[in-house]
Amino acid sequence: MIEFALAVFFLIVTPGPGVLTTAGIGAAYGYRPGLAFIAGLFVGGHIVMVLVISGIAAAGLAIPWLRTGLLLASVGYLVYLAYRVATAGSRIGFIDPSKPLGFWNGLALQPINPKAYVVTATLFSGFVIFPQALAFEVVVKIVIYNLIWVPLHVGWLWAGVTLHALNLPHVIQRRINVAMALSMLLVVGLALWSAA
């Protein structure tokens, strides 16, 4: 169970579209819109869990043209987000929407986020905790997952709010943008590796 919890922590803490956008909303608009976005990510993430655990995602992804199309769309979206982050200039931009993204944006992001599928599939198929009680194992995994997921996302929101308040020099802000963009590209690589 400890191995599962560590895997949840490390797979979720790595930057992906959800956490980077959460941090960006925090940097641009503060806690309230960020918490609404996190609530949407939370619900959307549980939709992805249902799709993965039930096998619906696997059945859909077994159709070659659908799998390839979804993979290309997801990778393209992540590369676009990485580009937006890297070219945000000398201010910490993450994502700079004209108005705050809210609950529905968070909800919509998770089903198209390849990292959400990779993480969920890895966690729910890669760690056997209670081999004789599959339903109980799924419930335990969901509880552990949520106990780690919620504080990590709130932490990313706090990081965005804090970075905004720090008023860092332009050169440091630019380096942070490039590091976040590279992290996004790492997620793209993970998605492509997983697909292979």
Results as ranks from 00 to 15, higher is better:
residue 162 T to F: 14
residue 107 L to K: 04
residue 136 F to E: 15
residue 116 A to S: 08
residue 125 S to Q: 07
residue 130 F to V: 03
residue 143 V to L: 15
residue 156 W to C: 04
residue 128 V to Q: 13
residue 126 G to S: 06
residue 167 N to E: 15
residue 119 V to D: 03
residue 113 N to T: 01
residue 135 A to D: 14
residue 135 A to H: 07
residue 136 F to P: 00
residue 121 A to S: 13
residue 142 I to A: 15
residue 109 L to T: 07
residue 149 W to A: 08
residue 108 A to R: 04
residue 138 V to F: 12
residue 116 A to G: 04
residue 139 V to R: 03
residue 130 F to H: 13
residue 119 V to K: 01
residue 133 A to E: 14
residue 116 A to W: 03
residue 159 A to I: 12
residue 110 Q to N: 10
residue 112 I to R: 07
residue 136 F to R: 10
residue 134 L to H: 11
residue 162 T to R: 14
residue 121 A to I: 01
residue 135 A to C: 04
residue 128 V to Y: 02
residue 167 N to L: 13
residue 109 L to W: 08
residue 124 F to N: 09
residue 147 L to F: 13
residue 143 V to D: 11
residue 165 A to G: 01
residue 133 A to I: 00
residue 140 V to K: 02
residue 127 F to N: 06
residue 163 L to M: 13
residue 147 L to K: 01
residue 150 V to W: 13
residue 124 F to D: 10
residue 148 I to T: 03
residue 129 I to K: 00
residue 131 P to S: 13
residue 112 I to D: 00
residue 148 I to L: 14
residue 166 L to C: 10
residue 118 V to L: 14
residue 107 L to N: 06
residue 126 G to C: 06
residue 144 I to N: 08
residue 153 H to K: 01
residue 136 F to K: 04
residue 123 L to T: 02
residue 130 F to C: 04
residue 163 L to E: 09
residue 157 L to I: 05
residue 153 H to F: 15
residue 153 H to I: 01
residue 141 K to R: 12
residue 124 F to A: 09
residue 115 K to N: 05
residue 131 P to Y: 11
residue 156 W to P: 01
